[in-house]
Design a protein around this nucleic acid. Structure first.
Lengths: 132, 132
DNA sequence: CGGTATCCAGAGCGATACTG
DNA sequence: CAGTATCGCTCTGGATACCG
């Protein structure tokens, strides 16, 4: 990992930077889950809600709207009774597949190490506190 | 992308799931930026603060602590006056490199498409609103 | 320099009720 | 079924002041 002196890769960390805004969006609490679920197949609103433990109706709606706005998810309303609305990834949304898999894979592989690190840190903290 | 009926890949979306907790952590607003910056080289507290536009002292401290707790970042205090504290990635933190690059790369490549999609969506919204 | 402690405003989010 | 609307709380995170 030797980048030399010039740091050829340096990404713009300014607040108004496009990349940062999009990153904040994609990496938010629910979006990753929604995208990951839609990667296998098209799903209805209620199916998504059932799959994602802990999400409220409101937050699912909000999340889906912003994903739709960003062109990552396509919303299809079927004019039937009762209403049937289906969500699926757009081609653009599909291009996130590999990246998200990579992130999830990483957490799966390293969760044990992280748990150990946390426990060790907490013990050190507790010891330090015990010394007053 | 045909997974068949069985959905061989299905990740646990329960709230208490380890993977989700770690994902929420790594994917938060500031952590990605800090990790990405430390990928090139070790940095001091003030250097990090200067690099990351918009972060408060408090949030930088909080972010660094949680990354340290998770074993992703190592904190080194040099006993000199004035104090000198340096942060660097641990080997575990270093394993995130490829994944984060992949995410950043994705946003860089697709930011234009997303901007276009957003603009189009907003126009549709405005039109719909105009119809009352 | 590199923090910690305290306070507080505002966004985020859940709960609830209502609708086409 | 798939939302929208409203309310109210929580919790993030900024501002400020102080410390080793």
């Amino acid at each position: 990992m030797d980048y030399g002196d010039a740091d050829p890769f340096q990404w713009d960390t300014r607040e108004d930077c496009q990349v940062r805004q999009i990153l904040d969006r994609v990496a938010d609490k629910w979006s990753l889950l929604v995208i990951a679920l839609l990667e296998h197949r098209r799903l209805r609103f209620t199916e998504l809600r059932r799959e994602i433990d802990g999400i409220s109706q409101r937050m699912l709606t909000v999340t889906l709207r912003s994903l739709e706005r960003d062109g990552l998810v396509k919303r299809t309303v079927h004019p039937v009774v009762p209403p049937r609305v289906e969500y699926e990834l757009t081609p653009l949304g599909g291009t996130l597949h590999a990246t998200i898999q990579s992130l999830v894979k990483w957490t799966e592989v390293h969760q044990e190490e992280i748990a150990v690190a946390r426990a060790a840190y907490d013990v050190r903290e507790a010891d330090a506190a015990a010394l007053h």
